[in-house]
Design a binder for these strands. Structure first.
Lengths: 133, 133
DNA sequence: CTAATTGCAAAAGCTTTGCAGCGCA
DNA sequence: TGCGCTGCAAAGCTTTTGCAATTAG
């Protein structure tokens, strides 16, 4: 199975919690889940995994570059699978829904701004908060 | 004094903690402070104000539109005086320093992206994480 | 005078950590 | 077998809240 290889490649033992969590992230809709969301999904599926393990696994996945952690407003982090395609986010303040977008012009402009100030851009976080018209 | 008027205008009683906190925010360098930063500054100045009060006052200031709360990475919120001029932020991952910038092109592009998706842009958060070259 | 405000301490919410036992390789 | 991993419970951190005492208007 695909998950096993990704885990091994990351130097992580192939354990049930890790495989299950990876599967949940791969098949989840919406794609952005909090640790609590993952934990609940696991419990609902009858898996006996602790919340601490979910946090540990997600943190390991992040370190391994398998997932990305976002700190949107609201106190809790959300995670999404890193598919290698960078994108930014749109959060609807009415429904909480999260959408993704990518805009070449904004990306380039950000790079230029950082460089004009004598820095190297290593990362960025752009979130548009919107509401329905 | 200027602070008193701003407070009265916001419908808040002019109390010592509020005036002191407002003064700290007005004169602070760097401009971005956490609740803890404000609290420490107060204590160092010999003021007997509780941390809970700092949080309450900052939250009231935010509701009144006097300050803006940011949730940069790192678990704790930072506050800055709202001078009416919108700007985004650059955070140096080496030093933790915070810089401000404003880019008309990015602003316009964001608005267009939200509208193209049928939404109304109500707010946005853009942070560039950079390092020294 | 009276409602708003404050300090303290306790509680809350998210996340991390210590530890003994379990399980993958 | 041996070290990594897990579950549980406890601890950590930032932030919020309850409450009695204090204070602004």
């Amino acid at each position: 199975m695909a998950e096993s290889n990704e885990l091994r490649k990351a130097g992580l033992k192939v354990t049930l919690p890790r495989v299950k969590i990876m599967q949940i992230l791969e098949s989840s809709e919406p794609r952005h889940m909090s640790a609590e969301d993952v934990y609940k999904t696991l419990i609902d599926a009858g898996e006996d995994v602790g919340l601490a393990t979910v946090y540990r696994v997600l943190t390991q996945f992040e370190a391994a570059g398998l997932v990305i952690r976002h700190n949107f407003d609201g106190g809790h982090a959300v995670f999404e699978l890193d598919d290698g395609e960078h994108h930014d986010h749109i959060v609807c303040v009415d429904t909480g829904e999260v959408f993704e977008f990518f805009d070449e012009k904004i990306e380039k402009r950000q790079k230029k701004i950082a460089e004009d100030m004598g820095f190297e851009l290593v990362d960025h976080s752009l979130v548009l908060y919107v509401k329905q018209k």
